[in-house]
């Protein structure tokens, strides 16, 4: 399927939500059957900075995986960037994931034995980007997160904060529509966490759409909007 064949739900002229979820559910068949996410309606507009909070096991990560096309919902419809992804083939979803989504994980997931710039460039490996452009853009993005001096370093020699900044560069370099982060500061001390959150704030100011899963109030306070998951059900938090 080519991009043109994709079902376009909105007109190009109106402002299209980055995320539009309706009645999304995810049930793990078990046994025992677990309804990790139930009947979630969630719309994220372009440029929004959203935090998703909730207790452990409430379904935050599951929702984030659904948002990032890493997992398929068992109910509901999901329109990403104006494209209905519920019915797409696994191949198309992989491609879309690579092009539209940037992930930041608590555990960084940097590849050992590959230097920092190679780790960042990996983000564009499965896209139509030439090798040269991949590395040029990766260096530029590492500059943006303040790691321009460590491009050739082995990730094992980086501090936790530096690793997470490298991971953020990797998430950003392919210019995603949506940056998803699952407990991005979970493995960091407060000053490194602060640095990561500063970067997120800067990205938000530049117009990037972010959704950050956290159970840390300091993290969720930085976001412009906060939703809470309780036993798989989503509710908007007023502030």
């Amino acid at each position: 399927m080519t991009t043109a064949e994709l079902q376009v739900v909105h007109d190009a002229d109106t402002e299209v939500p980055v995320v539009e979820m309706k009645g999304i559910g995810r049930t793990f068949p078990g046994p025992p059957e677990v309804r990790a996410v139930e009947n979630v309606d969630l719309t994220i507009s372009p440029g929004e900075y959203l935090s998703i909070v909730g207790t452990s096991g409430s379904g935050k990560s599951t929702l984030l995986h659904l948002l990032g096309l890493l997992d398929r919902p068992t109910a509901g419809t999901y329109v990403l960037d104006g494209v209905d992804v519920s019915t797409l083939s696994e191949r198309r979803r992989s491609r879309l994931r690579g092009e539209r989504i940037g992930f930041v994980f608590q555990a960084f997931h940097l590849l050992a034995h590959r230097n920092v710039v190679e780790n960042v460039a990996l983000s564009m490996l499965y896209q139509r980007v030439s090798r040269r452009e991949r590395f040029e853009r990766s260096r530029a993005t590492l500059d943006r997160v303040g790691l321009g001096h460590r491009v050739d370093a082995d990730p094992a020699t980086l501090s936790g904060g530096e690793r997470q900044r490298a991971a953020i560069a990797r998430a950003l370099v392919a210019e995603p529509s949506l940056l998803l982060a699952d407990e991005p500061t979970g493995n960091l001390d407060s000053s490194n966490a602060e640095a990561v959150l500063d970067i997120f704030g800067k990205l938000h100011a530049e117009g990037l759409t972010l959704a950050v899963v956290t159970h840390d109030d300091d993290v969720s306070k930085r976001a412009q909007r906060r939703v809470r998951i309780t036993d798989g059900t989503l509710s908007e938090e007023k502030r």
């Binding site: 890493l70 690579g98 989504i101 992930f103 990996l122 983000s123 564009m124 490996l125 499965y126």
Partner: peptide, 11 residues
């Protein structure tokens, strides 16, 4: 991670 950055099963 490779799947997250867009690798298909075939890749």
């Amino acid at each position: 991670l490779r799947r997250a950055v867009g690798a298909t099963r075939t890749h």
